[in-house]
Design a protein around this nucleic acid. Structure first.
Lengths: 149, 149
DNA sequence: TTTCTTGCAAACACTTTGCATGCGG
DNA sequence: CCGCATGCAAAGTGTTTGCAAGAAA
């Protein structure tokens, strides 16, 4: 995740305006980066900093940021989309119990050249995820009779 | 993807009924397995085989199948969810141009034991995707002035 | 001043649900 | 005949869009 100054700079360079709402949203993203927050959570947090932040502004700003490659949008169907600032290729470990997302440095990665040679496919971005249960949820469920939901 | 007989058998064993609608849906899944069809496409195809198939039955049946681990549901936000019968761990190459999904055998995979040791996370299922452009879309776009959208 | 941004509400697309009817076993 | 399955329509959800009013530059 870039720091606040470089994001502001990137915005100005593109002719985008720096508004208090955007500042609040960017601050939330930086503070909660490890949480991989969703739009709703970002909205609620940003609202604490500045009451005049609307949900559509949050969506607009997140769209702007991910369109410019400053953050990454993790799209889901069953749960709301999440946003992360870690742009390095890595694996996301996603807990089915509590929704927590853990970044895991991936020693694995496909060789784009080889993939292109074999399939003609030009790789751009990745989405590497494993679903399961985090330590806390494993313990919580173990206590309650070992049923694995 | 299992064959039709084993799916029917699996259904019977669970006390689930074999209806003409379900037969039609399962047949579509097997014929179009390489296409990774969405619920809408499955609905339209199944309807060709048997007019009395409704969209809710398609959703119900797909839900049943994926809940039992017979097929895998690939969840998206921007595009409709897709379903696949290939349950081996593999990478999906997803074309941003036409939505095509190519199965790519992944020589790489995380060691669940190592992940558990390091993070406490219990891995269950994976979702390994790369986004980019397929051969056809690369060519199509190249012809039109090299702009990479 | 000019253009981009905001915020409300309405639209959206896909999926799920409630419930009466229907059919498989 | 019993119970799950079907199909319609309606609800639901997170996200996007249209547009007038407002604020950055």
């Amino acid at each position: 995740m870039m720091n606040r100054e470089s994001i502001v700079k990137a915005f100005r360079e593109k002719g985008l305006k720096i508004t208090p709402q955007r500042i609040a949203i960017i601050e939330v993203l930086m503070e909660k980066n490890d949480d991989h927050p969703g739009a709703g959570a970002i909205y609620r947090e940003a609202r604490k900093k500045r009451r005049s932040v609307s949900l559509s502004t949050v969506y607009a700003t997140l769209g702007e940021l991910s369109r410019r490659g400053i953050i990454k949008k993790l799209q889901f169907d069953q749960m709301e989309n999440r946003y992360e600032g870690n742009l390095e290729e890595h694996v996301n470990l996603i807990c089915k119990g509590c929704g927590k997302i853990i970044d895991y440095e991936a020693p694995v990665s496909l060789d784009p050249a080889k993939v292109a040679r074999k399939t003609g496919f030009q790789m751009l971005d990745s989405r590497l995820e494993y679903y399961g249960y985090c330590r806390e949820c494993v313990n919580r469920l173990k206590g309650k009779g070992d049923r694995t939901p």
